[in-house]
Every structure is written in C-alpha cells, then in structure tokens.
Design a protein around this nucleic acid. Structure first.
Length: 506
DNA sequence: GGCCGAATAT
DNA sequence: GATATTCGGC
C-alpha cells in the first residue's frame, strides 16, 4: 500500500484508500469531487467557478437543508466539503462534531468570522481547515492537500497493520517491540486526529495535563511520607492516589510523578555517595552574605539556609494589632527547595525555638533549643493554613515566656539542615541519614521580609549580649549531630553580633 | 484484568 | 524538563 502511494507520480493514489472508488483519473487532483455550500449565491458562484477551473467537480448548494442532507447521507459521494459556517452554524457543528458522526471526508469551514474563538472552535471539532472570506483562489486550488494527507495517513496505517501481521502476533518479540511501539503510537494518534471526526480531535481525547504545583506536590509528598511509615510495600501509585484524595487525578498521573520523584531521590543519593566533600567547609561556614547562601544552596549536601524570623512579639502584640502569625510567612528560598515555604523562629531570653514549617514536607518540626528535646510533627495541607497559624499561635501562647525582641537587623539567622531521606527503590526502602546540621552564621536579614518592620516603633528592642554561640558549642554541634532533628541547646540561637562582623569573617 | 515500574513518547 | 503513554511482567 505504501508503495502504491509512494509511487504516485504515474498512477495516482489507490482509490481503495479513499471511500471514492471511481474518483480519480491519473492526473490527480483533477476530478476532485467537492461539495460546496454557501448562502450567498453570487459568491458561491465565484467559488464554484474557481473550483471548476482547477478541474474539480463541484456540487453546489445554497440550500441549507439539501446541503445538510448531502453531507449527512451522501458524504461518500464527495472527496471534500466546503461549508459556510454562518447559517449552518449549529447544525453542521453538531453533525461533524457529534460522536456518532461517520462523515469521513475533510470538511473545510468558510466564514467571515476571523476570531480566534471561532477558528479554534471549528478546528477542534472536526473541521480540517477554516478559510476566512474572501477566499483566495489559491486556497481553493490547494484543498486537495487534505486528501493527500488523509491518504498518507491511511497508507501508513494499512502498511503497518500488514507489517504487524507479517511479523506475527508474538508478544514476546522483544527485539521488535521498541521499534514497533513508536509506530503504533503514531498510528493511534493519527487515527484519532484524522480519521475519527467524532473524537473531538485532541482536546477531548487527550487527558488534561496535570501540573504538579506546590500544593499538589505537597499532597503527594505527604502521602508518600505517610505511606512510608506503614511499610514500603504501600508506597505505590494506587495508595498514594487514595491518600491524596484529589478528584480528577489518575493513578497514571501519580505513577508518572512517583517515577520522577524516585529518580530525584536516586540522583540525590548518588550525589551524596560520590561527593561527601560537599559539606560546607569551615571557611564557608564563616560566610554569611546572601551570595554565599546561594552558593551554599548550590552545594550538594547543603540545603538552602533557612531564614529564621525572630522578633516574634508577645501574643498580646497580635491582639493589640489585630494581626496574626500569617504575617511571618515568607518565601525564603527558591521554589522546589525543601525550605521553600515558611520558617518561623521565636526567641526568648533563655529559650530559642525554631519552628520550621515545610509545606513540601508536610510537616512542622519544632526544635526547641532548650534542655529538652522535643520533636513534634504535624501533617497539614497547604489550604489548612489557618490551622497552622493557630497551632503556632497556641504554641506561642502556651509555651513561651514573654518574648524579648532583638534589633531587627539581627532578626534573621541561617542554619543549614538536612533531612533524613527515605530512599525508595523498587520495594526497598531505606533511610539515608543526613549529614550533620551545620550552623551558618548570620545571614543578612531582608528587612522587607520582616513583617514587623513597619511597626518598629511599637516594638521594644533589646540587645542580647551574652547569648552568642561560643566556638566549642559549634564544634560540638558538628561533632555530635548526625541525625536530624536532634536538638542542641544552642542551635538556632540568635546572634548578637552585628551582621557586619560576620560578613567580615567571610 | 488490575496494577506496577521502566521505557519511551510528547 | 515535565508529564503522558506504552508495555512487559507480576
């Protein structure tokens, strides 16, 4: 079949490939049978003339009923139809876009309406082309291209089927599968597009593309996280899908995303294995500029520093100012990073506590840096933000002694942290312990991030001399910590140094 | 026949 | 690079 069409120069296309056995003479496209409908007789006549000049056999109708009848019941007597959209709008639209429609000839829509909406509507619903009036004769002459396209597709299909038949039905024909697969895929695609007017063309056939935004990904991660605890065999698309409980999402969507997720884990794991140097160096530890933090972020083993927003006022402050902790939300690092959401730290004279809220991890971890080690985890969804705020508010209310505020310039510190990953691979799951948490000195505070900046005059500032981390403590931090989130009494302690000092160290 | 995961296509 | 689809295998 392919050969016939391929060797078309002399013989023309195989008519069997079309539904019009007696159609062509040797000099295609002469003799092309065109069904032409339009309201304006005069204009219709012009079009008819042009078509005839090209050797086409034209059946013209300015009668709506008749045109519809011909198209519906005798479409196979034509090779192509040119229909004016205006009057037939509803009827023809329904006819060619309806699912049961069997009309298997290219249909060109003509219209004066050049709006994108109109063009799109028709092209998506069965029209093979959309010609805006006035129509150029050249465009009329070239209508046969749709026939060629159609035949070409057919021949591919037929040839391929023949090929498959010849190859036999053995599904174990491994060597061939990689080759056949794309072809088959192509065929399916083409069939849907070109041979199947019912199939609403691509839009209705194709699945809506799922965008894994932070919210959706968060749910995904939460589900994975949750299922991980129940045993590795549960971390499968179906279970994840159930846990996510997102309407419209399919198992396939999840499977695909899970695949990506695992690849990401693998990549990360490989990097960790191959490159342990990426723990920041002591020199780097001394650095604190914004640029440096970017550098750290690029480093393989180091997360982007978390900004700790201090200066959280006493609960009464919130009441007084009729505000709440949502003011403290801020994006602190590039999207997609583990720490891409919210980090809140609160401080008091003898207690430094860091709340870290990672929506992408779907958890809140609290790391009170007092003598007790407290770990608290909560599962939440992004849209339950109020719940999070309440939680923190409550926590602050209940647990903190009155908070002393630091000078705003020192309100942000940074600490690199890493989570213990769960590596999922096949049915295996193993915990990968993260390297030590490393304390990074002061990171410049972006004051614009500080919600209390404009309320500065209301805040009682005080210096915090005597609270600085001493070198030994930092050392012991590094030496002792090998898992997260063990806490250390001084971790996250606010720095009293002027920022300039830290920068100078670097 | 449902589901999984890897490979491959879009 | 992200997501969809296919496909062999369980």
């Amino acid at each position: 079949m392919v050969e016939k069409w391929g060797g078309d120069e002399n013989g023309g296309p195989d008519r069997d490939l079309l539904n019009s056995p007696n159609m062509f003479s040797g000099n295609f496209p002469e003799g092309l049978r065109v069904l032409l409908f339009g309201e304006d007789r005069q204009y219709l006549h012009i079009l008819e003339k042009h078509l005839q000049e090209f050797g086409y056999v034209v059946t013209t109708s300015h009668d709506e009923e008749r045109a519809m009848y011909l198209l519906r019941n005798h479409w196979d007597k034509f090779d192509i139809a040119i229909m004016e959209a205006h009057t037939l709008e509803g009827k023809i639209f329904r006819l060619i876009s309806e699912n049961e429609s069997e009309i298997d000839i290219p249909i060109i829509i003509t219209s004066q309406d050049d709006s994108r909406e109109s063009v799109t509507k028709w092209m998506r619903n069965g029209a093979c082309d959309y010609l805006i009036k006035p129509i150029r004769p050249e465009d009329l002459r070239l209508i046969y291209k749709y026939l060629i396209k159609k035949m070409k597709l057919r021949s591919v299909t037929v040839a391929e089927e023949a090929e498959e038949k010849a190859a036999g039905e053995k599904s174990s024909f491994v060597g061939d599968s990689t080759i056949r697969s794309p072809n088959r895929r192509k065929r399916n695609m083409l069939q849907t597009e070109e041979e199947d007017p019912d199939h609403n063309r691509d839009s209705a056939t194709k699945k809506r593309r799922v965008v894994w935004d932070d919210n959706l990904n968060g749910k995904f991660l939460e589900a994975v996280n949750y299922l991980s605890r129940n045993g590795q065999s549960d971390v499968v698309p179906k279970k994840i899908l159930e846990r996510m409980n997102v309407s419209g999402l399919t198992r396939e969507n999840v499977a695909s995303h899970l695949q990506k997720f695992r690849m990401g884990l693998k990549k990360k794991n490989d990097q960790n294995k191959s490159d342990d140097r990426s723990l920041i160096t002591p020199q780097e530890r001394g650095m604190s500029s914004g640029e440096r933090s970017n550098e750290l972020y690029r480093g393989r083993n180091v997360q982007f520093p978390t900004h700790h927003v201090n200066n959280i006022p006493q609960p009464s402050y919130f009441q007084q100012h009729n505000t709440s902790l949502n003011l403290m939300t801020q994006r602190v690092s590039p999207p997609g990073n583990h720490y891409d959401r919210l980090s809140v730290a609160s401080s008091s004279r003898n207690l430094v506590t860091t709340h870290q809220i990672h929506t992408s991890h779907q958890q809140i971890s609290e790391f009170p840096c007092n003598d007790q080690n407290i770990e608290e985890r909560l599962i939440f969804n992004e849209d339950e933000d109020d719940g999070v705020r309440n939680l923190i508010t409550n926590w602050l209310t209940q647990n903190l002694e009155p908070i002393n505020l630091f000078p705003l310039e020192e309100s942000v510190i940074a600490t690199t942290m890493r989570f213990n990953d769960i590596q999922v691979s096949g049915n295996q799951q193993q915990h990968v312990h993260a390297p030590s948490m490393v304390h990074i000195p002061l990171l410049p505070s972006s004051l614009s991030h500080n919600p209390f900046l404009d309320k500065k005059e209301n805040i009682q500032l005080m210096d915090f001399n005597g609270q600085q981390l001493c070198p030994e403590q930092q050392q012991s931090n590094l030496a002792n910590e090998n898992r997260f989130p063990e806490t250390n009494p001084r971790r996250g302690s606010p720095r009293r140094d002027k920022m300039g000092q830290d920068r100078d160290q670097a």
